[in-house]
Write a protein that binds this DNA or RNA. Structure first.
Lengths: 121, 121
DNA sequence: ACAAGGCATCGACGGACATCGAATCAGAGG
DNA sequence: CCTCTGATTCGATGTCCGTCGATGCCTTGT
């Protein structure tokens, strides 16, 4: 095998499902809304949105914390927000030596996008 | 002089721009993040998500408040959340006789969808 | 004009959350 | 082993926000 890439194998506590049923098909149930709202809430903070955007815009689709931590808040706060994004399933992380790298979770983000696109019409 | 009545003259609600720059192209600035986060935050609450979904799923693309207000919270709370969604530019409202109708604002929702779709790919 | 119903606003309360400094954990290197 | 640096966790604090009952506004029907 030529590819030595190591899969994270992290398995976030609650397996983040593909995401969400279509938004305009039928009214959300309380449970569906509870689950889906967490993802939107994760992006509903300016600092988290900047961090997420910084990761998404970074080359190779991943970014070290040290590369994106200049968003005007302290370093513990950056770590706190990255954890939130990870819990929401939008980011995944992997430690390689000294640094920790974060990357966008494409399937979850794409599902959120489809959810909105469907609602628009 | 007495006829120079001071009107509220509210024009700000319509100032909601098409939405947002691409997410994965470059890191968001603080201002961009501030503006965009408001929209995601609006969908980051389970009750608001249910209300939004109920409107989006309703026939003719619009729904009376009386048709969607059964989400487990009091009537003032429903009104409060609908106002938030309206302020975020995701819904618009119109009074016709006794009832008030809400409808999805397609351009804004579509822009949010594209923003995420771009980040995923 | 009056009463009734739908919806919005107000004021208050309680829980959630963003933020920070300090402490702690995890690798790399001397 | 010890130290240095990067990153997370902990504990405290101030603010924001979701929720409610009471109240007010608007429209309809009597």
């Amino acid at each position: 095998m030529s590819n030595t890439k190591v899969l994270p194998l992290v398995e976030p506590e609650t397996a983040v499902e593909p995401c969400c049923p279509p938004l305009a098909e039928r009214p959300f149930s309380a449970e569906e809304a509870e689950r889906t709202a967490k993802m939107f809430k994760a992006l509903g903070d300016p600092v988290r949105l900047r961090l997420f955007s910084a990761v998404a815009a970074h080359a190779d689709g991943e970014a070290c914390v040290c590369d994106i931590s200049d968003v005007g808040v302290s370093q513990p706060t950056v770590s706190h927000h990255l954890k939130k994004l990870k819990e929401a399933g939008l980011l995944s992380s992997e430690r390689r030596g000294t640094w920790v790298y974060y990357r966008v979770e494409p399937s979850v983000v794409a599902a959120m996008g489809r959810l909105l696109t469907a609602a628009a019409g």
